[in-house]
Structure formats: C-alpha cells, structure tokens
Design a protein around this nucleic acid. Sequence first.
RNA 1: GCGCCCUUCGUCUAUCGGUUAGGACUCAGGAUUUUCAUUCCUGCAAGAGGGGUUCGACUCCCCUAGGGCGCACCA
Length: 475
Amino acid sequence: MTENISIQKTGPVLRFAPSPTGMLHIGGARTALFNWLYARHTGGTFLLRIEDTDRERSTPEAVDAILNGMRWMGLDWDGDAVFQFARAARHREVAQKMLADGKAYRCYATADELTAMREEQKAKGLPMRYDGRWRDRDPAQAPPGAPYVVRLKSPQTGETIVHDLVVGDVRFANDQLDDMVLLRSDGTPTYMLAVVVDDADMGVSHVIRGADHLNNAARQIQIIAAMGASIPAYGHLPLINGPDGAKLSKRHGALAVEAYRDMGYLPETMRNYLLRLGWSHGDDETISTEDAIKWFNFEAIGKSPARMDYKKLDNLNGHYIRITPDETLVGEVAAFLERQTPPRILSMAARTRLAAAMPSLKERAKTLVQLATGADFLYTDGKRDLDASAARLLDGPGRARLAAALPALEATDWSGPALEEAARAHAEKTGLKLGDVAQPLRAALTGTATSPPLFEMLALLGREESLIRLRAYAD
RNA sequence: GCGCCCUUCGUCUAUCGGUUAGGACUCAGGAUUUUCAUUCCUGCAAGAGGGGUUCGACUCCCCUAGGGCGCACCA
C-alpha cells in the first residue's frame, strides 16, 4: 500500500480534505476548525488531504493558499499533507478489484448517448438517473476497443441509511441512487471513489464536512460496502450563508481567510467566531481556544445554516485585541504595515512610541487596521496634516484658544498629570470648558478629532515634538 | 422535476414537555469621560402557518409555506 500516509495515529482520526481550486474560504475554515477541535479534544489525529484529482482546476497556488490559511488559523495537522492525485494507482486498483468481484461493471455508453438519455427523462418528467443499460449486459456486445467507464453495481432495492452525528439518521431509498462512475474512461478515479479509498486507507474514523456532502454520504457508503471496508462516522455541518441568508458569495464574505487577516482580524477571533457559528456551550460567547478544545463535542452542533454577522465579528475582535499583550500587538501592527503597498517600516522610535501608547490605543480598535491607522500620528514627526473634523476644530476660535493655552502648558514639567492640571486651570481662568481647550490641542497634535487621551499623548511625544506640532497651528 | 436537510428576537444562540422563553451582537437611551473608545446600567425585540398527541407543547408527529443542498466521465 502507499507509504506516505502511514503515520502513527491515536484515538479518533479526523481529516480536512479541501480541493485546491481556490482559496481557503470561511466555510472550509470552519470545517477544518471543527475537525481539528475534535481531534485535539479527544487526543486523536487530524490529517490534511489535498483533493487534487481535478487536474484542470487544481493549482499549486491554491495549495499554498490553503496551507497558509490553515497555518494562520492556527490549525496544525498531523503528518504530511496527502495529495490525492498521487494515489490514483491505488484507486484504480480498488476499482479493478470491485470489477473482478462483480461489484462493479464496465459501461460503454457514450457521453452523447447519456445526454440524450437525460433529455428524454427530463421530457417525460422522470428523475434524471443513469438507467443501468450496461449493468447486466454482456461486455462482449461492446464495440471492440471502445472506451468505457467503470460503474458501481449499486443495490436497487432497500435503503441506505446515513447515521449522521449532526442531523441524525438520514434514509435514502436505493432506487433513488444510480450506478455512479468509479473510473473515468481515461482510467482516472472519480471523487467518489478517491475519497472513500483514501479515507479507508488513512484510517479515518470521523468524516466531518459540509452539509453539501450529505447526499454523497449515501453513495459513498455503498462504495465502502462494495469494498468491504468499514463505514466511518459522519457529521455534516450546516452551511454558512451570507448576511442576507443567501448562499455565501465572494460579495458576502466567501473570502479567503487571508482576506480576514488583511482586514485586521486576529486568528483567535476567527476561531471563536467560527466556533460559535453553529456550535454552542450554554451562554458562553467568548471562548478561548483552550476551552474550545476542552468543551468541543458533536452534540452541541446546530442543525440550521447560520449567517455571517460582521458586527459581531468586529465586537469579538475588539475583545481579543484588548486582551492581547501590548508587545504582541506592536508586532502585529508592524507586520500589518509592512504588508501594505508600498510597505511601511516603523522606525525604532515609532515602535517605542507605539508600545507606550498601546494600552490606550487598543481600547479603541476593533481591527488591526483601525489600530494601525489610529496610531498614525505616532509614526512620523512634525506638523500634522488635518483631517476634515480636525480642520474644523482649528477653523474658528480654536486656533486662538490653542495659542492662548500654550504658555500654561509650557510652564509645566510636561508630565501627563501636570499638563492636564495646567489645561484645567487655564480653562477655568478663561471661562471655557476643558473640551474647548483640549480639542484644538488634539487636532494640532494628532491631525484628528479623536485620539487616545490627549495629555497622555503630549507626554508621550515629549515637549519638543509636541510644541512643534502645536505651534504649527497656533497663530 | 426528483431526493435530502433546515425553520426561537434583525443576527448568532440557550431551552432537551411545565421558564415572566435566557444570553450575546446590533440598535435606542443613560452613567462615567478632554475627544473617541472602554466599562457599567436600562430598553426594544422571537417560537413561519395550520392540524394533531398530551392534563400541559418552542420542545413529539403530520401537512403547508419558505430557505438551503444534491441529482456530471466537478470536487
């Protein structure tokens, strides 16, 4: 048998099996997460298999994107990723065995012939299914040398039951299921065959995947039965819909997980959010990965499809930003800035300022993007460009108030408390509210109308740098 | 068309026959505050519809409606 799939396995064996025809999107990420969580919860094994049998659509770039997405999500798999296409010979071998055992047969029907058959069925209002025309026919009747596919000789009566961990028993009448193709006319295996053979060879005990595969489960069970292998436990996860309830599309958020990274979401946010989308643990909302591993089970998986809610994602991300250590956040912001085009590299001085301001900064950011942009005034020295609302603050009486307040500030030792004290005293003396004095100062110092606490920032930037910025707008 | 799955506040969900149907997000209002946030408090808001079963249904069964998935020599 194949050598690259024999790794030491313990406990339940789970797997995530994406096809590399695109990015790792949010639905796939959740499927991977649930598999990973259960494997880690039980001390089992989590395998990764790349289903690249569709040679037309599979690309190495997509493989990389999926692997990177998994790594970013923090979902580590056991052993090396298995590439399905590399196992085609084994799939063929299994099909040949089924042929020899009379569990499968050769079908010489041409593509045109089958199309015609379906059209006829459609016209008569019949279900569109392969009619088994070669099932019991003597292969000797086939035109010599004609191409053929190998089909499963599936049971025509009775029913196939999928015992699903999420939705319970699902019954399919066998007469609804036709004889599916196992091997194409070019000898390559179909998805149905490949999955089943690989799962069996890899010792997969639990197949946890999207609900779009629920129908496939019945067909796959039939192949497994024909192979004489044992049937794994199945669990089909309800799909994720867009905010409007319709199928998740690119427009909605069927985005690569890397897109979420670029929008400034933390991996722990994604894990928590995706976990709660379809799984619950009483009233718990913020669930650490540690607790998730401790608590995860199949019983609490919901049956109905869920929708993406970006407001909730933002809220959760804000929470995780707040509880992330400052040093970590500084690194994240620096990395984020470097990913920009053109890349922005923070100077050591800017990094130091960022670190000092982080406790106040992180309280007002929902994403890393907001965190990075909210700290913009810390990155470079000198006079600020004003945004619209800052310009308004320095438009009317603001400038005069700024100029009037300067001497009082200059007389301090430029510590946060002393600056605040001086500003308060000045405001009181001139009959102004503190805000009237503080806002123009903030505008000149940061170029914006909102920022972390003003006096803290003045102290952080230091007397010299602060005065350069303030004087630039005091005339 | 055929088959399968799903259905509690706008959204994510709790409830596993007996609750004033709970929590979270959003939204509205308030407290704190130099701005914005954070934090805290208050409020708005739900069992798709119709039949059963039962002393009693959100919970069990059936029908309808709505939504989703599948029906390839794609995965």
